[in-house]
Design a protein around this nucleic acid. Structure first.
Lengths: 182, 182
DNA sequence: GCAAATTAATGATTTATTCAAG
DNA sequence: CTTGAATAAATCATTAATTTGC
């Protein structure tokens, strides 16, 4: 069997686990150098290209949102139905009862921190790496996994980081860095 | 003035002319190597990057379609109005009269050959060029302009070329070639 | 058990929308 | 107002789950 018989990448279990862990930790839309690092790391566990990583995050984000929206809709429909046909309830049920609030952690999946993406925060590096770029940089943080520590890619775990003080600086540091690789 | 003082590319007149000519000739969504070639060529007339070429074609295609759609809608509205308030017309007007057909070439713009994109035809080269790729290839066809001949990128001017005989071969040669560069 | 047939997930592209420079 | 750049949504296509009949 040739080792590249498939037309599309399918992640190994380990790769998948790492990707999901990264996502849960806040790497939602990695930039070029992050992608490079992640790819390098995951290639220890099987064939993988940068574009695979890119696509994975893109799709995961989108489908996570879909799931979230669907849940919201379902809940709203339920609420509506209950509004029309109120079931016999114990009298002392305030509108703040957990049953009428879309509480987070509904299933253990990563359906928290959604909408209002303050994930625009980027690493203040206007690295080029574009096209002929030597794709150097970011190879020192590699080799820090091993204990499932998931090589800290510098970025964005505390949901608010830039949005307070100097969001003018944080914004628009993204510029040329985004697509490019693949 | 530093030669890279602007934050975004703005095409020179010559670059724009060439791009539009290419578009009119059927290069609607160039693949990686086409982009490479075009970029190399256009860089003779000013600074330009691959991603500029990519984005230009993407936007041009999209906005051309927008224009087309808007025109169609407008015409349909007109027809509808005329249906409701039929103006005094000469009796002998068949439904095939040009006035009732959205005829092409309404303005000289490239509003023909739209929809039904058989532009999927690609060059049968599964060149990689990905990331570290040496971005070689396709530098031989360069230097054939000069007489506005617009360096024939191998592809797709006669709308039907592959769709007849061996479309199984033509199809699925696309695979890994598309994004990558930028 | 085990393939053929269906369905569900998900990798990869394309298209539409949005943001912001000029 | 136009248009380069970037992101998100929609769509296509292939692979994995799964069902089903034998």
């Amino acid at each position: 069997m040739s080792p590249a018989a498939s037309s599309r990448w399918s992640p190994t279990t380990e790769q998948l686990m790492i990707l999901e862990e990264l996502y849960k930790r806040g790497i939602i839309a990695p930039n070029a150098s992050q992608i490079q690092t992640i790819t390098a790391h995951l290639s220890l566990y099987g064939n993988i290209e940068r574009k695979n990583v890119f696509y994975w995050f893109q799709n995961h984000k989108a489908r996570d949102r879909q799931k979230f929206k669907r849940k919201l809709i379902k809940q709203l429909q339920l609420q509506l139905q209950q509004h029309l046909h109120p079931p016999p309830l114990p009298r002392t049920l305030s509108p703040f009862h957990p049953a009428s609030v879309p509480q987070g952690g509904l299933e253990g999946t990563a359906t928290q921190m959604m909408m209002n993406h303050p994930w625009k925060v980027e690493i203040p590096e206007s690295i080029q790496m574009d096209g002929v770029g030597p794709l150097s940089a970011c190879s020192s943080s590699i080799r820090s996994l091993e204990t499932l520590e998931l090589f800290p890619i510098t970025a964005t775990n505390h949901k608010e980081e830039c949005n307070n003080n100097n969001n003018k600086i944080c914004h628009q540091l993204i510029s040329n860095d985004h697509f490019l690789s693949l």
